[in-house]
Deep mutational scan, measured.
Amino acid sequence: MTYKAILNGKTLKGETTTEAVDAATAEKVFKQYANDNGVDGEWTYDDATKTFTVTE
């Protein structure tokens, strides 16, 4: 399944996708990606669109 992350960081804005077996696995991948890029904020998840959003 393909999951998407939308990054609304102070220094990084954009989107990325990952293939994962479930939302929990995708969330770990996206949170690591955000952390590696200095983005730390509030996370939300929309199951209907399989989209995570982080906003700083």
Score class of each variant (00 low, 15 high):
Thr25Cys: 07
Met1Trp: 13
Gly38Pro: 01
Phe30Asn: 01
Tyr3Cys: 06
Trp43Glu: 00
Gly9Asn: 04
Thr2His: 09
Tyr3Lys: 05
Lys10Thr: 12
Tyr45Ala: 00
Gly9Lys: 03
Tyr3Asp: 05
Lys13Met: 08
Asp40Asn: 13
Asp22Leu: 03
Ala5Cys: 15
Val54Tyr: 07
Thr2Asp: 06
Gly14Phe: 15
Gly38Asn: 09
Lys4Phe: 11
Gly9Glu: 02
Lys31Ala: 05
Thr18Phe: 13
Thr17Ile: 09
Lys4Gly: 03
Phe52Lys: 01
Ala23Asn: 05
Lys10Ser: 09
Met1Asn: 14
Asp36Ser: 10
Leu7Asp: 02
Val21Gln: 12
Trp43Leu: 03
Lys28Ser: 08
Lys28Cys: 09
Asp36Lys: 08
Lys4Ile: 12
Lys31Gln: 08
Glu27Lys: 10
Asp46Gln: 03
Ala26Asp: 01
Ala34Lys: 00
Val29Ile: 15
Trp43Gly: 00
Lys13Gly: 05
Thr17Asn: 06
Asp40Gln: 13
Val21Cys: 13
Tyr3Phe: 13
Asn35Gln: 15
Thr2Met: 13
Ile6Phe: 06
Thr16Cys: 15
Lys50Ser: 05
Glu19Ile: 15
Ala24Thr: 09
Glu27Ile: 10
Asp47His: 11
Thr17Ala: 08
Ala26Tyr: 00
Glu56Met: 07
Val39Phe: 14
Asn37Met: 15
Thr44Tyr: 11
Thr11Asp: 11
Thr2Ala: 07
Glu15Gln: 11
Thr55Phe: 07
Val39Arg: 01
Glu42Tyr: 12
Gly41His: 02
Val29Lys: 08
Lys13Asn: 09
Ala48Gln: 11
Asp47Pro: 14
Thr2Ile: 15
Phe30Arg: 01
Gly9Pro: 02
Val39Tyr: 08
Asn8Leu: 13
Ile6Val: 10
Thr16Ile: 15
Thr44Val: 11
Glu27Arg: 08
Asp46Phe: 04
Ala20His: 03
Ala48Val: 12
Glu19Gln: 14
Asn8Gln: 09
Val29Ala: 08
Thr11Ser: 12
Glu15Val: 14
Thr18Arg: 04
Thr2Lys: 13
Ala48Glu: 13
Leu12Phe: 15
Asn8Trp: 11
Tyr45His: 00
Ala24Lys: 11
Glu27His: 13
Thr25Tyr: 06
Thr44Ala: 09
Val54Pro: 01
Met1Ser: 13
Lys50Ile: 01
Glu56Thr: 07
Thr17Leu: 09
Thr11Glu: 10
Trp43Pro: 00
Gln32Ile: 09
Lys31Asp: 02
Val21His: 12
Leu12Lys: 11
Thr11Gln: 10
Thr51Gly: 00
Asp40Tyr: 15
Lys4Glu: 04
Phe52Leu: 00
Thr44Cys: 09
Lys13Ser: 09
Thr11Cys: 15
Lys13Leu: 07
Glu19Lys: 12
Val21Ile: 13
Lys10Glu: 07
Tyr33Ser: 01
Gly38His: 09
Gln32Cys: 05
Ala24Asp: 10
Val54Phe: 15
Ile6Ser: 04
Gly41Glu: 00
Val29Thr: 09
Gly14Ala: 14
Ala5His: 03
Val29Trp: 14
Asn37Ala: 12
Asn35Pro: 01
Phe30Ser: 00
Lys31Ile: 07
Gly9Ala: 07
Asn35Leu: 15
Asp22Gly: 03
Glu15Leu: 11
Asn8Cys: 14
Thr44Lys: 09
Val39Pro: 02
Lys4Val: 09
Glu42Asp: 12
Gln32His: 06
Asn37Lys: 12
Met1Tyr: 15
Thr51Leu: 04
Ala20Ser: 07
Ala34Arg: 00
Gly41Ile: 03
Val39Met: 12
Asp36Pro: 01
Val54Arg: 02
Thr51Cys: 02
Thr51Ser: 04
Glu15Lys: 06
Thr25Leu: 07
Asp46Cys: 08
Tyr33Val: 05
Leu7Tyr: 12
Glu19Ala: 08
Val29His: 12
Lys10Trp: 10
Thr53Ala: 05
Val54Thr: 02
Tyr45Phe: 06
Gly14Met: 15
Asp46Arg: 02
Glu56Val: 08
Met1Ala: 13
Thr2Ser: 08
Thr51Ala: 03
Asp36Thr: 08
Lys31Tyr: 06
Thr11Asn: 13
Phe52Ile: 02
Thr44Glu: 11
Lys4Thr: 13
Thr51Glu: 04
Glu15His: 09
Val54Gly: 01
Gly41Tyr: 05
Asp36Phe: 10
Lys50Phe: 08
Thr18Gly: 02
Thr49Trp: 04
Leu12Glu: 05
Ala48Leu: 12
Thr11Phe: 14
Asn37Trp: 14
Gly9Gln: 04
Phe52Pro: 02
Glu56Asn: 05
Thr16Ser: 07
Asp47Ile: 09
Thr2Gln: 11
Glu27Gln: 11
Thr11Ala: 10
Gly14Asn: 08
Ile6Asn: 05
Lys13Val: 09
Thr17Val: 09
Thr18Cys: 15
Thr44Asp: 08
Asp22Val: 02
Asp46Glu: 06
Tyr45Gly: 00
Gly41Gln: 02
Asp40Phe: 15
Glu27Val: 06
Asn8Arg: 11
Thr51Met: 03
Phe52Cys: 00
Trp43Tyr: 02
Asn35Ile: 15
Gln32Arg: 10
Asp36Trp: 07
Thr18Asn: 03
Thr51Phe: 02
Glu42Arg: 09
Asp40Lys: 13
Glu19Tyr: 15
Asp22Ile: 01
Lys4Cys: 08
Asn8Pro: 03
Phe30Gln: 00
Glu19Arg: 13
Asp47Trp: 09
Leu7Glu: 02
Ile6Glu: 04
Asn37Thr: 06
Lys28Thr: 10
Lys13Thr: 10
Thr53Pro: 00
Thr17Asp: 05
Tyr3Thr: 05
Thr44Ile: 09
Gly38Ser: 06
Lys28Glu: 09
Asn8Val: 12
Val54Gln: 02
Lys4Tyr: 13
Thr18Glu: 03
Gly41Cys: 03
Glu56Gly: 06
Ala23Leu: 09
Ala48Asp: 11
Ala34Leu: 07
Asn37Leu: 15
Gln32Met: 09
Phe30Pro: 00
Trp43Lys: 00
Ala20Tyr: 02
Gly38Gln: 07
Thr51Val: 06
Gln32Glu: 10
Thr17His: 10
Thr53Cys: 07
